[in-house]
Amino acid sequence: MVHVTRRKALQLSGCAVVAGLAGCGALDRDSAPSPTLGEIGVTNLDFRPHTVSVLITDEGEPVYSAEMDVEAAKPEVDDSTDVATAGSGSFEGFPTEVEGSVLYAWRDRQPVSKWEKFDFQDKTTSCLGLNVHIGDVSQSRPGDVSVLYTTNPDTCKDAATAISADADG
């Protein structure tokens, strides 16, 4: 689990307050669906292994944090710059109801200023799947972190089953 220092928590809550205030002008918030988070995957396209961390805050308060070691991508041949197999993994145990939440992702010991941010309020969909990418296939950004998303409803099937099971018992 990622250790969140008081300084980091204050920095994150400041960011979340500003982001939350930006959404206060919306007149009809009930018309947008509440997003469900179905998955958080990791794809490492860099030829070096990395430790990937994620933090989800809700109204500035940390509600989930985790990290995982992800294997390096493997080249097609020893001297190739083409990726044959990416390192990958999936986070588990994250909250599925993410309305008003923000996800931060980073690799290794990146400073807070380099963390990638994904604001769930910016998306008007009922289902989201996230994938934290490190690098790219062309190796033009070998260590850069980005957060990609999908709105494929199949992503949220397992999350909907878990929510239903929690409600039943």
Rank of each mutant, 00 (worst) to 15 (best):
A72D: 08
E59H: 13
S88Y: 13
T161I: 12
C127I: 01
R7E: 15
P111A: 11
A22Q: 14
R141L: 12
A26W: 05
Q110I: 01
D78H: 11
D122I: 00
T155H: 06
R109W: 04
V145C: 06
M1K: 08
P62Q: 08
G60V: 12
V98I: 14
C15V: 05
R6Y: 03
T151G: 06
T161C: 06
G41T: 13
D108M: 05
T57C: 12
T51C: 12
V77I: 08
A105I: 04
D79R: 14
Y104Q: 01
V77E: 14
E97T: 04
Y149I: 02
G93H: 05
C15D: 08
N44R: 04
G169R: 13
L12Q: 01
G100E: 02
A22I: 09
Q139T: 05
R141W: 07
C24E: 12
G41E: 11
T155Y: 03
V4M: 03
D46L: 10
L148C: 03
S146K: 09
R109L: 08
T57Q: 05
G41I: 02
T57V: 15
A84Q: 11
P142C: 07
E39I: 06
S80P: 05
G87P: 03
S34H: 09
G38C: 10
V17L: 15
L130I: 07
Y149R: 07
H50N: 08
F120I: 01
T151R: 11
P153T: 09
L21C: 14
D69Q: 14
